[in-house]
């Protein structure tokens, strides 16, 4: 799992590549919390995420809650179909905005 971070205006864009599972969920959590600063908007680009289990979903929920508490916006984009299905089963699509592509989030 790798996270590449860039900032555009007041927005942090973090691109996640590879797998997030029980073995590296803690590392994923630390990397994300380390990357997120005082940004008013955070976008996770999951286009290159090949696998995520419930341990990774747990981290995303923690991050979403922390950002909500700070009054920052949080969105996800570019999920593959099987990963999107898992987000829908988990009801995450109702609490975290999910966009088709990075361009769509940036324009919103």
């Amino acid at each position: 799992m790798d996270i590449d971070v860039e900032r555009k205006n007041e927005t942090l864009i973090a691109k996640v590549t590879g797998r997030v599972d029980s073995a590296n969920a803690r590392e994923f959590e630390q990397a994300l919390s380390g990357a997120i600063g005082d940004d008013s908007k955070v976008i996770l680009d999951l286009g290159a995420l090949s696998y995520i289990s419930s341990s990774g979903l747990r981290v995303l929920l923690l991050v979403a809650k922390a950002l909500r508490n700070k009054g920052a916006e949080f969105a996800l984009c570019s999920l593959s179909d099987p990963i999107r299905e898992v987000f829908e089963i988990s009801g995450f699509d109702k609490i975290i905005p999910i966009y088709g592509s990075l361009m769509e989030v940036m324009e919103d």
């Binding site: 289990s53 419930s54 979903l57 747990r58 929920l61 923690l62 979403a64 809650k65 909500r68 975290i96």
Partner: peptide, 10 residues
């Protein structure tokens, strides 16, 4: 989101 419990999804 504020009240959603963490975990229990597996």
């Amino acid at each position: 989101l504020e009240n959603r419990p963490i975990g229990g999804l597996g």
